[in-house]
Design a binder for these strands. Structure first.
Lengths: 348, 348
DNA sequence: TTGTACGCGTTATCAG
DNA sequence: CTGATAACGCGTACAA
């Protein structure tokens, strides 16, 4: 294994001091042209580049942002990571990834690790806010003493940091309103959890919307489940098999597109024709939505833009004193075929 | 912003030297119990942890591996990254991500950046080997002088590094044989490219298999295309509309599952019934394969296990002298519904 | 058992 | 314009 040339090697070989080498590298104008040329030549010959670690030690920064999320294999977080990566890259920063898995909480070890690495900032995405709010804010507060902190969180939580908020209200309102317009009254929600301590509180928001629109919120229409396809299959089966078909809902809103995938599969297996017999709306507007059968209508939370904002604010906060504020990114409904809207279909 | 306590702070406050603090942190047994206790107490009080940057500078290493791949939003690479992450994590290493986008080549800048960051190792995944082999090996060779290098590559390329090879042969053979068994003779390949300089040479391998099995390799059955769903839609439309329906293939093998998604959508739009009118086989065995309609039969290259092996070997090579060798991970065919095999269906 | 002193590679400051 | 030199925080011989 070679040893990479150091600034000393360059300085010696060019017959100058290390200070001058730095000046040349940094394109400091106060260097005689002849000197610059000679030094640059040696630099090129060795393909010299300043050592990252040394720079970091000296500057006390890492030129890296931490992104903390549950799992990157989940497409939603994958998109956040990707967007964060490019936004950071654009600013000469790298991303250090931390996956917490199911463990939603911010552990003390994680906090210490982040401080130890001298992260220039941290972005928390995912479900940390489901944990005890007190603990959470304590952790964020401590972290905030060392580096800027940003979170991508539902609109109704208040955290002591840069909050990029997803539009929980419209995320629930849009699907319900769309279905209502199409004539649906019995609308079910599958996946996630109905409890207000839920990951993203999507279930609770959904219930609220039903009430606002004066629609029945039959408890039989709300099955707590997980966040993946198998959960969707099981949940819809459990719901429908417990109900006389005359009481079946006519539309299903799912926690996310994965759950919707499972629901669609199960409904087809039961012989239903979609969207005629059942309307479905997912959430996240994943890449495969246009390729399900029928193509899945879905809510887009615009995670990429939230991640971009988060990184941008983090980088900004690095310079100035850190602030605590919120930015809301509105949700959008992407209408496809799974509710029959494209047929001008209207349920009685 | 707080300043994190340094080893000096701890030493002063505990009334010992920095060396002793290090000993306590490192659990060096040659420390008097009383001293250890006192120092540990101060350490705990400040939640002191040695600075990563300082350690890196001192040790000349970064405790980090680089993963270079085209895009993480592609599920295949996403899985590689995820697996690499956990394997590295298990060994106290972090992952530094580099996305190259379409730019397949290993640029000189990338090489320098990797060296500059003192990466403990690099894993290249993706399509770098499509580039000129000479350039590639030159870059790998240079990199190899500074750190262990591993690649996840097709089985038929020879690179001067740790080669985790995907099973290109079976990746082509398995689908063709499966279709052949089911009675298919006119088999098409869509997506990627037929040229041997192709990204993964999957097209070329496919042609070879057709010949081996004495099946017709009508050029009309091979449409170069991209790697995504839109490409699949366009490619199949182009192929079929240029052909009298009597000459249509009876089965389609696609470059990957995304292309298959597009193909399925387009075929349905044309009114075909699947798998009756057309058999389809994808590649990568993505999570959604079980949820397409019909469920997609697909080849699994086992990217997770390849990534694990790669990281493991990288970590090993860090200690010993670096070697150059290859490990092959065999491909598997996961049979679902898209070829009708579950019906005992047999085409004449 | 403990402390001193130096090296790791850069950058910044301050003389010259 | 250029060169010493002092941090930056840690590990580690070597000495005590």
């Amino acid at each position: 294994m070679n040893r990479k040339a150091t600034i000393y090697d360059i300085a010696r070989e060019a017959g100058v001091s290390t200070a001058t080498v730095t000046r040349v590298v940094r394109k400091d104008p106060h260097v005689k042209e002849a000197t610059r040329l000679k030094v640059q030549q040696v630099i090129d010959a060795h393909a010299y580049t300043p050592s990252m670690s040394a720079q970091n030690l000296e500057s006390g920064r890492s030129r890296a942002l931490a992104v903390v999320l549950p799992v990157i294999s989940n497409l939603y977080f994958n998109r956040i990571l990707d967007a964060a990566y490019w936004e950071a890259d654009k600013n000469g920063c790298s991303i250090r990834l931390f996956q917490t898995m199911e463990n939603q909480a911010i552990s003390a070890e994680l906090v210490n690790e982040l401080i130890r690495c001298r992260m220039d900032g941290v972005l928390f995405a995912g479900s940390i806010w489901s944990a005890d709010r007190g603990d959470l804010n304590t952790a964020l507060e401590k972290l905030g003493k060392y580096m800027p902190v940003a979170t991508i969180c539902p609109q109704d939580v208040s955290l002591e940091c840069i909050c990029i908020q997803s539009d929980l209200v419209n995320c629930s309102r849009l699907p319900v309103r769309h279905l209502h317009t199409l004539g649906h009254r019995r609308i079910a929600f599958l996946g996630g959890s109905m409890h207000s301590k839920d990951t993203s509180r999507r279930g609770a928001g959904f219930l609220e919307q039903l009430r606002v629109m004066d629609l029945p919120d039959d408890p039989a229409y709300h099955v707590d489940a997980g966040y993946d396809m198998e959960s969707g299959e099981r949940a819809v089966l459990r719901m429908l098999s417990g109900l006389d078909s005359s009481r079946w809902p006519t539309a299903i809103v799912t926690f996310n597109d994965l759950v919707a995938l499972g629901v669609i599969k199960q409904l087809k297996k039961m012989g239903l024709s979609l969207p005629r017999d059942m309307a479905i709306i997912g959430c996240d507007n994943q890449f495969f939505c246009a390729y399900t059968d029928p193509a899945l209508t879905s809510v887009d939370l615009h995670p990429e833009e939230m991640a971009q904002s988060a990184v941008r604010e983090l980088l900004l906060a690095r310079e100035s004193s850190s602030r605590s504020f919120a930015i809301v990114r509105e949700a959008t409904l992407v209408v496809r075929e799974s509710c029959g809207a494209h047929f001008g279909f209207r349920r009685l």
